[in-house]
Design a protein around this nucleic acid. Sequence first.
DNA 1: AAAACTTTGTTTAGCCACTAGACTAACAAT
DNA 2: ATTGTTAGTCTAGTGGCTAAACAAAGTTTT
Lengths: 402, 402
Amino acid sequence: MNIGENKTWNHHVVKEGNKSLVLKKIINHSPISRAAVAQEVGLNKGTVSSLVNDLLDDQLIYESGPGKSSGGRRPVMLLFNEKAGYSIGIDIGVNYLLGVLTDLNGNICIEKEVTFKNLSYEEIEKQLFNTIDHLTESAPPSPHGIIGIGVGVPGIVDNNGEILLAPNLKWKNLNLKLVLENRYQLPIIIENEANAGAYGEKRFGAGKDSEHIIYVSAGIGIGVGLILNGALYKGSNGFSGELGHMTIQVNGPTCRCGNKGCWELFASEQALLTAAEKMNIFSHSGKELELSDLMVLAEQGDPKVIALFEQAGDYLGVGINNIINSFNPQQVIIGNRMASSSKWLTKTLTDRVSNQALWFQQNDLTICFSELSTFSSALGAAAFSIENFLSVSMQQKTSLKA
Amino acid sequence: MNIGENKTWNHHVVKEGNKSLVLKKIINHSPISRAAVAQEVGLNKGTVSSLVNDLLDDQLIYESGPGKSSGGRRPVMLLFNEKAGYSIGIDIGVNYLLGVLTDLNGNICIEKEVTFKNLSYEEIEKQLFNTIDHLTESAPPSPHGIIGIGVGVPGIVDNNGEILLAPNLKWKNLNLKLVLENRYQLPIIIENEANAGAYGEKRFGAGKDSEHIIYVSAGIGIGVGLILNGALYKGSNGFSGELGHMTIQVNGPTCRCGNKGCWELFASEQALLTAAEKMNIFSHSGKELELSDLMVLAEQGDPKVIALFEQAGDYLGVGINNIINSFNPQQVIIGNRMASSSKWLTKTLTDRVSNQALWFQQNDLTICFSELSTFSSALGAAAFSIENFLSVSMQQKTSLKA
DNA sequence: AAAACTTTGTTTAGCCACTAGACTAACAAT
DNA sequence: ATTGTTAGTCTAGTGGCTAAACAAAGTTTT
C-alpha cells in the first residue's frame, strides 16, 4: 500500500495501519504491555488501548498474568494468540507431496508426506485432496479454524494463480486455485515453489532479519525466489526468478528450454546426476541413480563423487555471483534438495564468491543454506495464507450488534 | 511508505497521501476540473476542493479559464504549474559533463556540456561548479527557485550518497554530496549513472507507462538500473545492477574486476573497440579509435565493422535474456552510448531474445532503445530532486500566520 | 504504616480530515 | 422564463487520533 498508489486515504486506513503495527509489535516482542507498545510504535496510550481491545475481541491476542513491576503498577502482558487459527501449506514436488498444518506463527503442528512417481494430474489431485482433508480434520479447534491453503508448485504461476506450465509434472494451463476454492471455500494461494520457499525463509527461517533475500531453490532444476524490500517480488506477470535458465556459458550445451549454457545445466541436482552417470557411477540399489546415492558415496569418502559435488558448488557460486551483482542482497539462502549436500558444496561455493564477487558487494552479505530444510516451500505457502488472514483481520468489521 | 513499516498513521499522513494523489492526477491529466479529480481518485468533492486550495496556495498548480460545459456549469480547469521551480540534473561521464536545467515536468530549459579527457577530481569539480553556477544563474524566476541538484556518476554510490568507487574517473570514497550541500545549501542527490538513467526513462522517457523497467546503460562498461514496482530498486546497500560483471562465460577472458567472462567484456563499447583494434581497424582521424569512427565505417557499409556491431548486439541479447529471466520486466530499455548504434544492434539482439528467452516471458515485453538519447542520466538525476521536492511539498506546513 | 512517588491503563475533551448532502453558481435545453 | 444538469462551496456529522486528567496498583521513602 504505497502512497503513490491509486488508493484514497481515510480514517479506516489509518486504523487498519495502526492496528497492524500494534499486532506486529506484539507478535515480535511478546510478552509486551500496552504501555510498551505505545512507546515503541509511537502511538498514544489511549489509542493503543483501543486497538488492543479490538485485537482481544478478534481473539488474535490474549492477556497473560501481570508482568514485573518497574517501580509502579504491574503491566498486563499481551501475547499473540498463535493458536487462533491454522494454515495449511502444501509443497508439490516432482515425486512427492508434502503438507503441513501450522499455527499462525508457522509452528508445524502436523505434517503429512506422500511420495510417488509419474502420477497423472488426476492422481496427484487425489493425493492433494487426501492430504488437505486429513490436515483439516486433524486441526485442533480454534476461533478462526483453517484460515487458508497455500500451495507451492514447481512451475510457472501467473499473477492470477494459474499454473501455466509445470514441465516436470507435465501440467499446463491448470487452474488449481479454482479447483481448491470450489472444494474448500477457503482463501487459496498458488505460488511457484521457489517463491514460496523464499517467503518461508523470510518469515520463519534464516532470513527473518533481512529485507533483501535471494532464495536459490536448487533441486532437479533451479528456481529463485526474490524478497526485495521485505516483500516477494514477482515481476510484471509473476515470472521473476527463472534464473535456472540464466546463461553462464555462451554457446554452451543445449538446455531443454532451447537456450544454451543455462545455469541449471551446471549446478542442479540433475546436472550432478548426469555428470555422475557419465562417470559410470551407479546406484547400489540397482535402481535409477539418486542424489541420496551420491551422498552415501561422498559420506564414504569417494573422491570422484566428492569432486563432483565440489564442481557443482563452484558452479552454484558462479550463478550466485551473478545474483549478488544483480540484486545486492543481504542474504543468499540455498534451499531445496541440494541444500542437504551443503557439506560438500560450501567450500568451493564460498571460494568462488569471495574470490570473484565485487568486494563492496561482500560487506553485510551472508550466504547460507536453508534453516527449514525440506519445509521451506510448504511453510512459505502456509505463510502466504497467514499473511493474508492477518491483513484481512485488520480491516474494519461491519459492526453486527447483538 | 508501506503499511508494514514502522510508521504511525494519523491525519497528517492521510492528508499528505490524498494531496499527493490529487496532484498526480492533475499532473498526468491536466487540464482537469476539481469535479473530475474527485470522481477519478474517489474522494469527496469537498475534500478535493480543500486540497486543491492548498496546492494553489503552494503555487504548484494554477487555474486556467473555464473548460467546456457538458450540460451544466462550466468547470474551472486545473493545470500543473511546471514552472513553479527548476531542477538541475548533472551527468558526469568519463570524458564529459552534461548539465541540464529542467522544469518540474522534466522539460529541458537549458543544457550545458563540456568535454574533457583525463582531468583530476579537482578539475572536474571546477567544471561541475561552473556548470551548476551557470544553470542556476540562467534559471527563470519562479516561486520555488532551484529545488535541488541531482548528479549521476559512473560508479558505485552507497545509500548515503557517498561515491565509493568510480574506476574510470579514478575516484574513491568521495563525498560529493557533502561538497555540493555545503556550497549550494540545496537538497543534493548523488546516484549511479545507470540508476539515474533508469529513473529518467521511467519518468520522462520510454518507460512512462511501465512499472517494471530494466535500463541497460551500455557505454564503456555496462551498468543496469532497476525500476521494480514503479520505484528504483537499489538493493541492500545501494549496489544493485552491477550486471556488467555478470558471468556469461564461465572461465572466459579475465575482466579488470578480477572475475572471468563478464558481460561487459562482450557487449560494451570497450568490447567493441577492443575487437575492432584486434582486426586492425583504426580511426581515420589518426587518434585513438572511438565509437563514432566505427559508426562512420558502418554507415559506409564496411562489412567487417557491421559484423562487429552485430556480434555485440548478439552478446547484448545474451545478457538481456538473463535479465528477463531474473526480473520478468515489462520493458527493457538500452541506453547510453551504445544506444546510438541501435541501427546495427537491433536485429541480432532481438533475434537472440526471441529465439532464446522463455516463451512466457515474451508476452507484454518490449525491448527498445532510449527515447531520451544522451539525456537519460541527467534527466533522471533532475527527476530525483523533483520527486523529493514534490514529496516534501505534500507535507504539512507549520502554519505561520501573519 | 503513612505518605510520596511511579508506572499502567482508561476515560474524557478536543482536534482534524474525511464524508454526505444541502446549497449556490453557472451553464444548456426547452 | 422554466427546468434540468453540472461545478464548486459550505455545513454538520463522524471516526480515529492526541493530550491530559484520572484511576488503579504497584514501589520507595520517611
